[in-house]
């Protein structure tokens, strides 16, 4: 099979995730978009693992899955905190850094 099938698919997933992170207002949806980006990266790693016959890519994909799970846990806790403080899960209200 052609390598680029997988690589471009993973790039597509990544960029859709980027769009979601940038354009979504709801914190939970932003986190979902982050998951899309992470999956794009993982697909990339597995494709190279198959191409190079090296198992390291799979191991790293496993690590990323684990870290993604942790990230979702912490991220959702933060969104909950925002919701509790601002009465809304929207990220627009978080603008204390305004210059």
């Amino acid at each position: 099979m052609i390598m680029n099938q997988f690589l471009i698919l993973s790039a597509f997933l990544f960029c859709v995730g980027v769009y979601g992170v940038l354009a979504r207002r709801n914190g939970v949806l932003v986190l979902m978009s982050v998951e899309l980006m992470l999956n794009g990266v993982n697909l990339n790693l597995i494709a190279f693992s198959a191409r190079l016959h090296a198992v390291s890519g799979q191991v790293f994909a496993l690590f990323i899955i684990t870290i993604a799970a942790a990230e979702v846990g912490v991220g959702l806790a933060i969104v909950l905190l925002i919701y509790r403080n601002l009465r809304s899960p929207d990220l627009d209200g978080v603008d204390q850094l305004k210059g």
Binding site: V18, V21, L22, A23, V30, L91, D92, V94, D95, Q96, L97, K98, G99
Partner: peptide, 18 residues
Amino acid sequence: LLSRVQTGRLQWYALVSF
């Protein structure tokens, strides 16, 4: 002038970085 870039909004910063 530059301070207008600093909207304080997370996703604006992310947009600029991407």
